[in-house]
Design a protein around this nucleic acid. Structure first.
Lengths: 249, 249
DNA sequence: CGACGTGTTGAAGGAGCTCAATCTAAGTGG
DNA sequence: CCACTTAGATTGAGCTCCTTCAACACGTCG
């Protein structure tokens, strides 16, 4: 491990390294990316729909979400992001942001000039492949979310979200899938699952009543992971955690 | 135009060229990709969830869709694809397919070995950028679909789908947004919008009754595009049709 | 202390679902 | 050319999951 864990870019090196094996030169090149570090309060906009940002951004600490507002005023939360996630890789290529990215909690964000990202991607193929891979996994998660809100009932949707968040936290080394802090209001959960906050409340209470979870404020304790995964129709393949680029056949 | 329009890969050159300007060497490199052309009947699987395909595939003619089956037996159609779309770019990097790709009509598909795709992507940065761009646009469309099924009512969802399909057909030079053939059953439309076929039927009939569309079998004639777009809460930004990589600031 | 954001609960209503019947058009085989 | 089949579209009736609206509880923070 040549990456200094104090370095704001270290989580990025870690993440990219999971996708594609990086040699020390690759790692150094990533760590050499120019960036501006900024601390934002909860609810701040990191990217606004319609912006033409000159930077991509990396989530260095805290949690964020992607979001879109539709014509009738409804809001759909599209994805959740945590430390090490590149919340806006697309801005290195696409010109106009097609959705909003907002801070869920207080966050630290590293803004990296798009030109630097592009140069790195094509200058060091392993890094480029890892970034592309990251984009593809994002797409896979988005498909799962489409299926989640499109074809699952309320209980299943909620349980699925709880599973995904737990697994991803654990994978990022940020917590335990069976005991974590979910930094979202029930209204935000509603916007993530395509429900209303009232119904989210009833659904969560039912999971508690059935002894599948045991919540306390925002703290989620999963009493029976297997049952939660079953109720949530959850299977982690879509997160592509195992099959790195170079995985043996 | 050095690309021969008879060449199965020509639509790919066209599409990538829209995203990122390609010089003649780039175009030749794309056309030089090795591939196997196959004709498949409607309903055939092009990729199956869980497969570890050794090829990416390009839709040379016909229509296809991505699809996922959830625990309760429900099916969610995740995306629609037409001539020139790379229906499986992700398989060049991801190992395991996370969803199914199926032929909607009779299709011709070119299977391109993943190694060749990777080599091209990193050997010719303009092409690689165009491919990455394509991936990003796919992601954007997927987000819109998530919002569509998550936060819009039945009428809006259907109208939105009709708008998207029309615009994309037109953009691909395959038809007129106000008069086209939608090669889907109402059950498939239901799976795409997260509704039931019965409700899709009532919704479509209401659009006809309101003189917004005028359908005849699978033929869709849009009587009033502006009203359809309004009812469908449709705005084409998420398709990123205008803002190519090299677009002037 | 009062105000605000969030969670919790109840009651009533509705958008969309389920089930099931009927209709239509396009085969298909004799 | 016609009887038969079949996939898909259309329609009706009843039901349910989730929404809406509204009230109340609770903790935090100025």
């Amino acid at each position: 491990m040549s990456s200094n864990s104090q370095d704001p870019l270290a989580p990025l090196v870690r993440k990219l390294g999971l996708w594609s094996p990086l040699d020390s030169q690759d790692e150094e090149a990533v760590l050499a990316l120019p960036y501006t570090l900024r601390t934002l309060t909860a609810h701040s906009y990191i990217v606004r729909e319609g912006d033409n940002p000159e930077s991509s951004c990396l989530l260095v600490s805290g949690f964020a979400y992607r979001q879109k507002v539709v014509g009738n005023g409804g809001r759909q939360i599209l994805a959740l992001h945590m430390k090490g996630d590149i919340v806006d890789l697309q801005n290195s290529l696409l010109r106009t942001a097609d959705h909003n990215v907002q801070a869920l909690t207080k966050v630290e964000v590293a803004f990296i000039p798009r030109e630097a990202v592009k140069k790195l991607a094509f200058g060091r193929p392993s890094v480029g492949m890892a970034m592309w891979y990251d984009t593809l996994v994002d797409g896979s998660v988005q498909r799962e979310w489409t299926a989640n809100v499109g074809r699952r009932d309320a209980t299943t949707r909620m349980a699925h979200l709880l599973c995904e968040f737990g697994i991803r936290l654990e994978d990022a080394g940020l917590g335990d899938r069976c005991d974590y802090e979910l930094p979202m209001t029930q209204e935000q959960l509603a916007d993530a699952t395509g429900l209303t906050s009232v119904h989210v409340n009833r659904t969560l209470m039912a999971l508690d009543r059935d002894k599948i979870t045991d919540r306390n404020k925002r703290a989620v304790r999963v009493v029976d992971w297997n049952r939660l995964a079953e109720v949530g129709d959850f299977s982690s393949e879509y997160l592509h955690l195992q099959d790195e680029v170079a995985a043996p056949r």
